[in-house]
Every structure is written in C-alpha cells, then in structure tokens.
C-alpha cells in the first residue's frame, strides 16, 4: 500500500489485457505510413522546385520525423483515457480501492504508469517515423540526416511529449468516466476540431497567439517541428508563432495536472456504488 506497489499494480493492469500492444501496432503502422508519405511528397516537391527550397521546407527530415508525435499523440491519450474509464466501466474501482483505500495514491500511480507507457509509445512512434520516413527520404534522393544533433534532439522531445500525453489521458478519463463519451470527445477534438482551430487561428495574429496554446500546438512546440507549421493559410509566418519548446512542455504538463486534479475531485473521490 505504498506508491511503489500501487504503480506496480497499475503496470500489471495494463500488461494483462491486450489493449496496449494492439494500440502500439496500430500506432507504428499509422505513423510509419504517414511519415513515408510525407517524405515522398516533400522530396517530390523539392525535386520539382529545383534548388529553390521554400524556407519552411529546409528541415524536411524534421517535419517527417515529428509526425511521430504530431499525428501519433492521440494514441497515448487514448490509452490513458481507456484504462482509466475501464475502471469505472468494469467496476474494478471496487477491488482497487479495497486493496488500496488511498485513492489519490492510486490515481498518481496511474499517471506515472501512463507516462511510462506514453514514453514507450513515443519510442515506437519515433522508430516508425525515422525508420520508414528516413528510408523513404534516402531512397528518393533526400537526406535522412541521422547524424544531425537536431534529429536526435527531436526524437528525444517526441518521446517526452508522448509521455505527457499519456498522463493527459488519465486526467481526461477521470474527468469523463464514460468510456464511449471520452472516445468520441477525444477523436472529435484531436482529429477534427483542433486541426480546424489551428488552421483558423493562423489567419490573424491575435488568434495565432492564442492558437499556440492549443494542446496539439503546444505539443508540436515541445517537439520543435510539425507538418502543421507549414500547412496553415498564414504559411511559414504562422510557423514562427510557436511557443518555446519548454513552454510547450509546460502547457502539456499543466494540462495533465489540471485534468487529473479535476478528475480526482469530481469522479475519483465519489461514492463507489
């Protein structure tokens, strides 16, 4: 009944059902496919424009590799939200709180566990984006830039971002304990609402200033590159409207902590009937 035992128990919970590796496989395929596609498209663009590279395309390899987190981040959040809501859905909060009545400790153990799993997902996603994306870059005549320090820094930050996203997922699951609702909210926000908001925000300067605090934008700031930074109607200028990498990290961390705290007081401490 201490934090170490609580965390070990949370690890066992995750490892004894199939969800974690199914999501990991889908993540690898999804990110690998996207990174490969981006790499192919960008080298094609570079070829057609000759040597006159648009400024934003100078770091093609970073944009390709950053797809690990810029599109893969939904997986650790989903994992965190699913394992948390499954405790409500299958009423396993009862044995959990019987074994350890310190509910805050249990929730903290979950956050720690999902941060570790998030980091693992980060490693899987980076392996996919660098493995497949880098291969396509090399084959199509680009440069994989694997000996560049920037490349390795980006890979490390992507892993950190994914770890934070895992923690955000726990908080989200505690705030919205209904499993179906949380899946719908998560997919609607990450796959539709946020991309639209980010594109829309880049139109004016003041909206762009707000837009950089959107979760996905903060995550991309932490990682240091994103396909979104060149896709806006504002073009490359919008890409300059990005938080510092450490600010992006703090925004994610704050989101994880605030969501978890709200979940703790609203649903986690409630009567288990």
């Amino acid at each position: 009944m201490n934090l170490v035992n609580a965390t070990r128990a949370e690890f066992s919970k995750l490892l004894t059902v199939r969800l974690w590796w199914i999501l990991a496989i889908v993540l690898f395929v999804y990110v690998g496919f996207t990174a490969g596609l981006l790499a192919g498209v960008f080298t094609g663009l570079i070829d057609s424009t000759g040597d006159q590279l648009p400024a934003a395309l100078a770091d093609v390899h970073l944009i390709v590799y950053s797809s690990a987190s810029s599109i893969g981040y939904v997986f650790p959040v989903l994992l965190g939200a699913l394992v948390t809501t499954s405790e409500f859905r299958h009423q396993t909060l009862t044995p959990t709180f019987l074994a350890n009545p310190r509910r805050g400790q249990v929730l903290l153990a979950k956050v720690i566990t999902l941060a570790v799993f998030g980091a693992f997902y980060g490693a899987v996603a980076v392996a996919a984006s660098v493995g497949v994306g880098g291969a396509v870059l090399s084959v199509t005549g680009g440069d994989a830039m694997l000996d560049s320090e920037d490349t390795w820094l980006l890979m490390a930050r992507a892993v950190v971002a994914m770890a934070l996203w895992g923690a955000v997922g726990v908080g989200l699951g505690a705030v919205v304990p209904n499993q179906v609702a949380v899946i719908v909210i998560l997919l609607a926000f990450t796959q539709f609402l946020e991309p639209v908001l980010r594109l829309g925000a880049s139109v004016w300067e003041w909206t762009a200033r707000l837009g950089q605090y959107l979760p996905g934008a903060a995550s991309d700031a932490l990682v240091g590159a994103s396909v979104f930074s060149i896709a806006g109607p504002g073009g490359p200028s919008a890409s300059t409207m990005m938080l510092e990498w450490w600010q992006g990290g703090l925004v994610l961390l704050a989101m994880a902590l605030v969501a978890t705290a709200i979940g703790y007081f609203t649903t986690w401490k409630r009567d288990v009937t």
Partner: peptide
C-alpha cells in the same frame, strides 16, 4: 488476483 495482491503487498 495478482494485481490486487501486488497493490496490497
């Protein structure tokens, strides 16, 4: 059972 045995030492 192993999960709750772990949690409760």
């Amino acid at each position: 059972l192993a999960i709750y045995a772990t949690a409760a030492a």
